[in-house]
């Protein structure tokens, strides 16, 4: 259990893992996540389940700090000390008609199961994939059953130059959609939600709040949805992006910035250059 079966580098600092865990593989639904603790003094970090296959499940991890650096250093054969899950409410998958799904950065991984499930439920799905530049796209062949796939890069190295929400805005001028999803960095989800709001389109976003337990027991992941307090881990992680208080969400994400920096510095002092990223 919890053994890394396969590992693949997708881009600088972005790694794919297949991990053995029958229970999670059997039970995971699109939109759900797990909590990892890589070792005994490790912290609990939430990661989305980005696919399942028999007795294993897949995650795609972006190295941003100590815990994810450490995780990305692990090799096939290594074991993750603890994986708790699946957690969170699954995405609301059903027949809507025409659906637009936006994935940005590592969010591309998160939307794969959602897009596939939406297609299986008979929806026409258009996808916008956004990243910093061409080399940060991955697993794009897994979107081949989508109606259309649009690419956007910050630097214009592939597809349209610009941001995901700009592409979304353009598409909404030409086409009608019944519902949308946007998953990626907070700023991207915020901007997409504003576009959706303007167009009266319901949009699901997946909030990557800072979590501890992931089971509704601490309230650390609380967010304001339509001015009401919700716990991301048990009430979400998906919420209607038009109702999210983005400013408070993003401020809360920065809570431990100094501590995170310190932890990473200390770690790099110990292990040297993170050549494995």
């Amino acid at each position: 259990m919890n053994e890394i079966l396969e590992k693949k580098k997708l881009a600088y600092g972005v790694h794919l893992f297949w991990i053995k865990n029958e229970l999670i593989a059997k039970k995971a639904k699109p939109g759900q996540f797990v909590i990892f603790r890589t070792h005994d003094s490790g912290e609990r970090i939430p990661i989305t389940i980005a696919g399942v296959n028999n007795n294993k499940f897949r995650v795609i991890v972006k190295a941003v700090g100590k815990s994810t650096y450490e995780l990305c250093k692990l090799q096939p054969g290594d074991k993750i000390a603890d994986i708790s899950g699946p957690l969170g409410m699954p995405s609301e998958i059903k027949f809507y008609g025409k659906v637009l799904v936006v994935g940005g950065g590592v969010g591309i991984a998160t939307i794969i199961p959602i897009v596939q499930a939406l297609i299986s439920s008979g929806n026409d799905v258009d996808v916008i994939l956004a990243s910093r530049s061409r080399e940060f796209f991955f697993l794009t062949d897994e979107f081949e059953n989508a109606k259309n796939v649009y690419y956007v890069t910050d630097d214009g190295s592939f597809g349209d130059k610009g941001f995901a929400h700009e592409k979304m805005d353009k598409l909404l001028k030409e086409k009608q959609y019944d519902i949308a999803w946007a998953i990626g960095p907070a700023l991207m989800m915020k901007a997409c939600s504003e576009v959706a709001k303007k167009n009266n389109l319901k949009i699901w976003v997946s909030l990557n709040a800072i979590m501890v337990d992931g089971t509704g027991m601490c309230g650390g992941c609380r967010v304001l949805i339509n001015n009401e307090m919700k716990y991301t881990c048990v009430d979400g992680p998906e919420f209607d992006g038009r109702l999210v208080n983005w400013d408070s969400f993003m401020i809360r994400l920065s809570q431990y910035r100094e501590e995170e920096k310190l932890a990473l510095e200390r770690y790099l002092e110990k292990v040297g250059e993170p050549t494995w990223l």
Binding site: S41, V212, M217, C218, G219, I251, E260, L262, A263
Partner: peptide
Amino acid sequence: NGVYSANEFLTRINLMKAYKFPEADTP
């Protein structure tokens, strides 16, 4: 930021040993 539930504060301290940060990873 800075407003905690006692559950979160105590979970960080007791279960995650945050008082040992950065020896323990949870801040």
